[in-house]
Design a protein around this nucleic acid. Sequence first.
DNA 1: GTCTATAGTCTGATAGAC
DNA 2: GTCTATCAGACTATAGAC
Lengths: 192, 192
Amino acid sequence: MNVMNDSPRRKELTRQAAQLFVQEGFDRTTVRMLAQEMGIKSGSLFHHFRDKQEILAAVIEEGTQNALLIARASLESCDHTPEARLQAMARAHLETLLTDRNAHVVALYEWRRLDPEARDHLIHLRDAYEALWEAVIDEALDAGLIHGDRFLVSRFVMGALNWTVRWYDPAGPRSPDDLAHELVAMITQRPA
Amino acid sequence: MNVMNDSPRRKELTRQAAQLFVQEGFDRTTVRMLAQEMGIKSGSLFHHFRDKQEILAAVIEEGTQNALLIARASLESCDHTPEARLQAMARAHLETLLTDRNAHVVALYEWRRLDPEARDHLIHLRDAYEALWEAVIDEALDAGLIHGDRFLVSRFVMGALNWTVRWYDPAGPRSPDDLAHELVAMITQRPA
DNA sequence: GTCTATAGTCTGATAGAC
DNA sequence: GTCTATCAGACTATAGAC
């Protein structure tokens, strides 16, 4: 069994697992469902992953890493104003949540299902992503664009964004970009 | 089996189930765990509830009903300004989520685990609670206290509040009331 | 790398005595 | 209203052939 490799095959299997975990939740997703989605039998799955937990860890690592990369790229290609940077972060966050609709959602909603060892391994990645957010929030606070406690504002903003997964309708009239714009408008107190 | 009764016994069992559902999640909570928490054997559990699903429905009904009652009471005993009312709603919401720490959390986080019939039965209760929120948001919008789209502002505010469950530390320095105050300050753009 | 077959465990739920 | 005993099915994971 190939533990901890990064083969393209494993990446693809991880992507398919993510989709099922979002649809059904980790606990309700059986190894048989995963295998079927991947077009193999359940026994074969354990050639690629040691156990079901390792699949979850792979999905969450992929989801957080991806969110981090996209957020960084987004920050590098936007205007250098606090408001533009805040908006870029919100848009990037929503796009990984609502457009890809898989690994990042799993990272947020199934984090508690990780066993302690996997959590210890992935917590640094998660911290890096949250640190990026807090830096951008800090800039907005320093510029007087928003007000309040840095820790609480970060948590509230991320919470508002994370919860969109529960109600957002991709077929509806609003794009993730619209949502990002409206959220920033809400906390910077400008009419949308 | 006593389906759909409201005996004090059943209420108490529902309360204990809620605690386990929050701790472990619905899927990972077995009927044996529930029975043990209740001080009976697993077979006896089915005298009070038809099946595991019915326990979940009872918890969610209890949690939403309670949130609705507390929110209404909170609105009736606060000042009649849009800001005070917004704060009262936020405080009530957080108190049912973070202080009771059971049934309302289950209502929010395990809603998707309800089977379709139970969802149909409970959706009106949930709608009533959300309508209360939207009314208070509307007042704040009309008064110019906040800006934006009524639907989006409601969803963002509720998301920010709901996500506190994931990070709030009851042993920390902040009370639910502090959080409510900071959230309202954030969206009304006043220094905390 | 995938298959078949299955071990071993846990699950929700039922039956019937008390 | 609670108990004991148990069923039938589903679950993760393994073994060994190809």
